[in-house]
Design a binder for these strands. Structure first.
Lengths: 219, 219
DNA sequence: AGATTAATCGACAGACTTGTCAGTTGATAA
DNA sequence: TTATCAACTGACAAGTCTGTCGATTAATCT
């Protein structure tokens, strides 16, 4: 789908009728709409209104609402998919692997804060119909594997890798899902501000690493 | 809203036309539909189809879709609200209070596994419009308070109570949000089976308690 | 400059949804 | 038994939403 450079000169002048730019703004607007409402409740008219281009452009470029939805899904998952795939954790200790994994995951979602919400909608409403099996599954199994290794090696406590993987993902992603709703920031900082995103990353990593280790005093 | 016993004899014979029973089945069907789709994407026709009664009954008893939605919200939050309010944690140590809180919360959502999903939809789609401020807020501040006490007392590590409260809630609730989507159970057990719910409760409590404590080896 | 094609728009047809209403049926009470 | 009323139904009016189509405009090529 890469457009062949139709002429040698790269014109950086802002074009009025730029197919790629139009598709991009539609995708961005659609991402916001789908993140908030999900596939069914999203309104193509609302998406069009946010872009400034006519509603028919959606159908011109993406066939129908479903096509647009899939495009949004693919675009927003691309980075996560790529990052988790190029992660090579086999040689690391379970603790180091877990930390590495969390850093990558949290960094990725901090840059795509709408991703968790989109994933949620997809999972709940469409029961993952639009996931062939790609991202979220592979990401989950990666985490399960790390946990299994750690338990076997005795460096993690006797946790259930499957359930714990879900709970860990919850610690990482829940923040973003609720973000739109949470008004009460600690000292007036916006939840998705750079400072708060960094804080959340730190907190989540510390919390999770502590959570998987042997607790010192079992009461 | 308690119906006054219209006659002394309590008739346990199954009535064909029972207003309360009809409302109850509508509410239950609506709970499922709203949990999966949220307010906008929920279809009154789909709700009616699940109940077996005519669609117009929804409007007869609940005025409109929004009225039904609010009724569902109130009914599904009632228990959580009541449980968290009658929790008296002031006199307990931070650890004991946290454990107590988690037991109550997890027990409640295990009995109402659709609640987290409904909360999620309400938060994301409607930005909490239908929460006056009731349940989820008070529950969150309760947890923040416990964490603050624990940090001040030095029994918890130097965590950010606000962010950590969200992450903890994520550990507790995320399991239920994804439940409909997760097929792969560890040994073939269904995610919402009694055994798995109990396992999740145990795992979440152990994970969270370990997560808030000082980690033994700070690498 | 004129022709060609891709990008864009606005209006609209068709389908789907909500909410209403007039009428029917079963329970209760006189 | 009959009257009355609440519970209930199916058909439909009105509104909303998706997706299409012919017309229009900007860029590109010759």
């Amino acid at each position: 789908m890469v457009r062949p450079a139709k002429s040698e000169k790269v014109q950086s002048v802002k074009k009025c009728r730029d197919a790629e730019a139009t598709q991009a703004v539609i995708l961005t607007a659609a991402e916001a709409e789908f993140a908030q409402h999900g596939l069914m409740a999203a309104r193509t008219e609302a998406i069009a209104a946010k872009t400034g281009v006519a509603k028919s452009m959606i159908y011109y470029y993406f066939k129908d609402k479903e096509g647009l939805y899939q495009a949004v899904l693919e675009r927003s998952h691309a980075e996560l998919l790529q990052i988790t795939q190029q992660l090579d954790l086999e040689d690391l200790s379970p603790e180091a692997a877990l930390k590495q994994f969390l850093v990558a995951l949290l960094d990725c979602v901090a840059r795509n804060p709408k991703l968790p919400t989109i994933m949620f909608h997809e999972a709940v409403q469409n029961q993952g119909k639009y996931y062939k099996r790609s991202s979220s599954l592979s990401i989950d199994t990666t985490l399960v594997n790390i946990l299994e290794r750690g338990v076997t090696a005795g460096v993690f406590r006797q946790l259930d890798p499957f359930v714990s993987a879900i709970n860990i993902m919850g610690s990482c992603l829940f923040y973003f899902i609720g973000a739109g709703n949470i008004q009460q920031h600690p000292q007036g900082k916006r939840v998705l501000s750079k400072a708060m995103l960094e804080k959340h990353t730190q907190e989540a990593i510390a919390f999770i690493l502590a959570g998987v280790q042997q607790s010192q005093n079992v009461s």
